[in-house]
Design a protein around this nucleic acid. Structure first.
Length: 520
DNA sequence: CACTAGTGCAA
DNA sequence: TATTGCACTAGTG
């Protein structure tokens, strides 16, 4: 937190903190307190973020103050404003003042909802851990990315020529509008689906069209290369900090409605992994000489939480014996012994398992599996016959959510679900899926946050040279000196698995390598 | 420069 | 008509 130049400066609350900090005014705790408390009190409600709360408070306060001062709209008499060193500072100081006031107000609100332990023992202790991750940054192999970029350039030139030839004219391949004109008007291909503004040209549509014409297939190839090139290969080197030679993401603690973190500038939580190209991009995330990257990820954490929270005996047993949970589901779904389960059956079972976590519907599963809705419904019915505990869990979540208006995680985090009381069928359906998904995704977020705090605390006590450098929802990544690898492997695994004792125990897989692709 | 739409990357 | 995010390009104002 102390080296402000590369830590959370993107956030204007943090900027206020720096401005005021130079004047010797201690604001840090109050600003984070308030931001996080507002988040815990209003998760998922974008209209009630700290922004809104602070501005509403400010408006009122300024009106009162200016009236008392005889109507001077600038409210320049405030001591914090007078201390301000720049033009932007008055605004920030006013907000800072509102934040300080709110900080007095929020503890009793938190207490009233039983959120004090989550606040004191999880979110606040996490703040310095996140600040340190941001400050540490990640080393990028800019030379490798530059090499990949040149390769992609050459491929794209070739692809583009080919596309223009197949289309019979030149056009902007990146424009869905122009592409639709070519595909559905000029070439007369059947429009599969509409968007708000025209015909859809997304991956699913182009894949269907690919059986009738060569052009859609080449568009898909081109799209993939352009996507990865512009979003990752060319963008990441630009974000390397000139002083540290590393990229320093911002981890936002108060965005996701479920309690997850989010990452931006750059977003290091959506770095490609699939396919040859994705793999090569991950190879550009490297450790310093003498160091290795250590990746530790929770194995099937959300399904394990489903097993624990539903107390479903079949699911729990599956995890306790350490068998492959998707194969187990396939055995249940198809009523066949293990040796007769094909990889196709396992794939179906895996999709069904994911579907359960997201709050399944026959329509959704059907479109995902590419089978009829009737067929999808058979899978779902069959699933619930075999996992009756899961059925009860879902019913219970829906009942609780309807009754209370919110659901909770194992750690007591709340999410209000206004969608459930909507008269709109689709909105209500969304509410039902949120009621099932949020306790699972949110508890997983709670658990890894606790692990981060515990590991960070231990790392300080043990005075290791290893550094925590990234969190990707169910994975932690460390940069570890060669000599500390055995110790870190043991301790990280122990701390992550030891966060909470579940009926389906948490297990952590660890990999070590010179780059992120090999470590994962 | 701010904004939306369409698209697609991750867990 | 499957959950949570962030960010790219095109296009508009």
């Amino acid at each position: 937190m102390e080296s402000a130049s590369i830590t959370k400066v993107g956030h204007d609350l943090k900027l206020a903190e720096i401005v005021l900090g130079r004047r010797g005014i201690v604001l840090r705790n109050a600003s984070f307190d308030t931001m996080i408390a507002s988040y815990l009190l209003n998760p998922g409600r974008r209209d009630h973020t700290l922004e809104t709360v602070a501005f509403e408070y400010l408006k009122e306060r300024l009106t009162t103050a200016t009236e008392a001062a005889g109507g001077d709209k600038e409210a320049k008499a405030h001591p914090l404003i007078e201390a301000a060193p720049s033009r932007i500072a008055p605004y920030l100081c006013q907000r800072a003042d509102a934040i300080l006031k709110l900080a007095d107000l929020l503890p009793s609100l938190l207490d009233g909802q039983g959120l004090t332990p989550l606040f004191n023992d999880l979110e606040m202790p996490l703040v310095p851990v996140l600040a340190e991750i941001e400050r540490n940054g990640v080393k990028i192999d800019a030379d490798l990315l530059s090499e990949i970029s040149k390769e992609l350039d050459a491929k794209l030139v070739e692809l583009t020529e080919r596309i223009y030839r197949l289309a019979g004219e030149e056009f902007n391949i990146g424009s869905p509008k122009q592409l639709a004109e070519i595909l559905f008007v000029k070439l007369g291909l059947p429009p599969i689906r509409k968007t708000k503004t025209g015909y859809s040209t997304d991956e699913e549509v182009l894949t269907q069209l690919a059986v009738r014409h060569e052009l859609p297939a080449e568009i898909l190839n081109s799209r993939q290369l352009m996507k990865l090139k512009s979003t990752y290969v060319d963008a990441l080197p630009k974000l390397i900090h000139p002083e540290t030679g590393r990229v320093h993401t911002q981890l936002n603690q108060t965005i996701a409605a479920t309690g997850r973190l989010s990452s931006k500038d750059p977003n290091l939580q959506n770095i490609p992994i699939k396919g040859e190209l994705g793999r090569r991009i991950r190879q550009a995330f490297i450790a310093e000489p003498g160091y290795q990257l250590l990746s530790a990820d929770y194995n099937q954490i959300e399904l394990r939480l489903l097993a624990h929270m539903s107390e479903d005996p079949v699911l729990i047993e599956s995890f306790r014996t350490g068998e492959d949970v998707h194969t187990r589901t396939a055995i249940q779904l198809f009523g066949l012994p293990k040796q007769e389960i094909s990889s196709e059956m396992r794939r179906v079972a895996k999709t069904v398992n994911f579907g359960i976590i997201y709050g399944i519907s026959p329509f959704g599963l059907a479109s995902n599996l590419g089978v009829s809705q009737t067929e999808a419904k058979r899978y779902i019915d069959r699933y619930f016959e075999n996992y009756q505990g899961v059925q009860r869990f879902i019913d219970q979540m829906l009942e609780t959510a309807t009754q209370q208006g919110y659901v909770t995680t194992l750690f007591g985090r709340r999410r209000h679900i206004a969608e459930l009381s909507s008269r709109n069928t689709q909105t209500r359906g969304l509410g039902e899926r949120l009621a099932v998904n949020t306790p699972l995704q949110g508890t997983a977020a709670d658990i890894i946050k606790k692990a981060m705090i515990d590991i960070h605390r231990w790392m300080q006590e043990a005075q290791v040279k290893s550094r925590m450098i990234l969190q990707v929802h169910d994975e932690l990544i460390f940069e570890v000196p060669e000599s500390e690898i055995p110790l870190m492997k043991e301790k990280v695994k122990e701390k992550m698995e030891g966060v909470i004792q579940l009926k389906a125990p948490l297990t952590v897989d660890i990999g070590v390598a010179a780059n992120w692709a090999e470590a994962h």
